[in-house]
Computed example of a mutant assay.
Amino acid sequence: MTTPRTTIPDVSRLPVATPALSLRGGRVSFGSRTLWDGLDLDVDPGEFVAVLGPNGSGKTTLVRVLLGLLPLSAGDVRIAGRPPRRGSPSLGYVPQQKALDPDLPLRGRDLVGLGLDGHRLGFGLRGRRARRERVVAALAAVGGTGYADAPVGRLSGGEQQRLRVAQALVGDPDVLLCDEPLLSLDLAHQRAVTRLIDERRRAANTAVLFVTHEINPVLPLVDRILYLVDGRFRIGPPSEVMTSEVLSELYRTHIEVVRVRGRLIVVGAEEQSDFCHEEPA
């Protein structure tokens, strides 16, 4: 009897998953000032990466590079294997919460719809029904159906931010860029917005890059942290990055990370702006 042969696959021929976001040797400089240099970062589909650091460290600049609004001074960047560009369907963007004019003639569904065609001239007659269905689905996903026809300027900050999340997700992006999306929101709305983003990345395997000063609502969800300080950076799991030794090295001064009632308190950072980090459950 002949024993069947087991074929061992050639590892070199196996398909390799393309990172949702890839940055190689990234540098951004403005004149003689370099925000960061030599930045290598791969974010896998479904991964949640938090970007931390003091004001002026280049967090929002990183988001602008990924959105295709600012070129790198050196290095290479790819979103789902392609160079970033304005209006890319591979990207969803959730900005900071900012108050809108109460008399702005824009409904909730209109704001969400801008995520599909805000960067294009028209959507086409054939696509109107599909567009409407996608907007309705996005509103339902964030619990915004009840104020789809309400003037956006008359909604609460939390309701407006739900609509911005829907706007970012309506195009079914590979990467969700969040630039301080919890700013100015109360704790309840912070939790609601964070839950929406996390549900999306788990359901659709969407990569999340989350810029924040307030880490408490998201740390239990974070896979890795990118910490930027004065041209230096560190990337790794929270347990490796959020330590007294690592932050003291980055800030070039003594930083104390202590545990207080299940929370991480970071004391001594620049600008007297202490960070308060909740430990994951």
Rank of each mutant, 00 (worst) to 15 (best):
V135L: 05
V136G: 02
A137E: 15
G143Y: 09
G144S: 09
Y147S: 10
A148Y: 12
D149Q: 11
P151N: 11
V152C: 06
G153W: 11
S156D: 11
S156G: 07
S156L: 13
G158W: 05
E159R: 06
Q161C: 04
R162C: 06
L163G: 08
R164W: 14
A166E: 09
A168W: 05
L169K: 00
V170T: 08
G171Y: 02
D172I: 00
P173T: 00
P173F: 03
D179M: 09
D179E: 11
E180T: 11
E180Y: 03
E180F: 08
P181R: 05
P181A: 02
L185M: 07
D186F: 03
A188G: 14
A188W: 01
Q190L: 05
A192C: 12
A192V: 14
V193E: 00
V193K: 00
T194G: 04
T194Q: 00
D198S: 10
E199R: 14
R200G: 00
R202I: 00
A204D: 06
N205M: 10
V208C: 09
L209Y: 09
T212F: 10
I215S: 13
N216T: 15
P217R: 03
P217E: 01
V218C: 04
V218D: 06
V218P: 10
V218G: 07
V222P: 06
D223C: 12
R224I: 04
I225K: 01
L226A: 05
Y227R: 01
D230L: 01
D230N: 15
F233D: 05
R234L: 05
V241M: 14
M242R: 02
V246R: 07
L247T: 02
L247V: 04
S248R: 10
S248P: 06
E249D: 15
